[in-house]
Design a protein around this nucleic acid. Structure first.
Lengths: 141, 141
DNA sequence: GCTAATGTAGACACGGAGGTCGACATTGAT
DNA sequence: ATCAATGTCGACCTCCGTGTCTACATTAGC
């Protein structure tokens, strides 16, 4: 449905959201979310470019959200790393088409529904209440 | 949203649906849908395994639908070649979880909505009324 | 039965997403 | 000013979905 990069981004963002305002370093995020440490860098870079997180180098540095968790939608996180394919015009460029062919309409509708699902969820909605048994952050073995 | 293989399958099925009961050979389907001729074979094999089409070799042979177009849903076509990822249980296998973590619930919800979109559409709904300007079958140049 | 049209099958090639590695740059604490 | 913790960047590797190639099997028509 979405790329694993997008899932990584969501896990990382949700983890940071659970750590209030402190800067969290990459190793800690990687340990908690099991996103590969080096790959996490690329994900965080994209989240930074999308202005969802900010970073600070040096001891005590790391990453944190730029905005409160209830003001960030899951859709923003997903689109920061992974464009959801929407079909707004005829893929053949036939300008005369007022509307898409039924098949293209269906494909676009599927994309639209996914977009809606992610747009309706705020990051704060994704925080697990009972932390002890959360499964969104897999355990390292 | 779905793989290009799934889009190929939909285009091929919709094309066959527009040819009533006659057997359509692979070259004709490939020309009409611009699905690469050799790759189309693999797609058709999967559609055959899913019992959506039947084939006949020899001169005058080819492929055709096994059931009427209004009794096949787009979801059947898509799932014949491409599983839509649903999350029915905790990915960590924590049996104690009565319900999924919020994040996994969201991901599953996205998959569910896509499934619904495709389940609601029959192949017959995807046939273009005005054939002259259809864009679902790209023109070879 | 022969031939041509067609489908069948498996091995191989390509490209992009996912993932790793090593050298470098920046900052906080002392 | 120095050092260590941390982030930054670019090159590389790997795997799998996509797509191609070549040889083989089956059948309609004569």
């Amino acid at each position: 449905m979405i790329s694993s990069t997008a899932k990584y981004a969501l896990r990382a963002i949700v983890y940071m959201a659970g750590q209030s305002d402190r800067y969290v370093n990459r190793s800690e995020i990687s340990n908690a979310t099991l996103v590969p440490h080096e790959y996490l860098l690329k994900v965080l870079n994209q989240l930074d470019a999308a202005e969802l997180v900010e970073s600070r180098p040096g001891p005590g540095g790391g990453y944190r959200l730029r905005r409160p968790a209830d003001e960030i939608t899951a859709l923003e996180v997903v689109t920061a790393v992974d464009s959801i394919p929407r079909i707004t015009e005829c893929p053949l460029g036939l300008a005369e088409h007022e509307q898409l062919c039924p098949l293209h309409q269906l494909l676009d509708d599927a994309g639209k529904r996914v977009e809606e699902a992610f747009a309706e969820a705020k990051v704060s909605d994704l925080l697990s209440r009972k932390r002890s048994r959360t499964c969104e952050f897999p355990q390292k073995k």
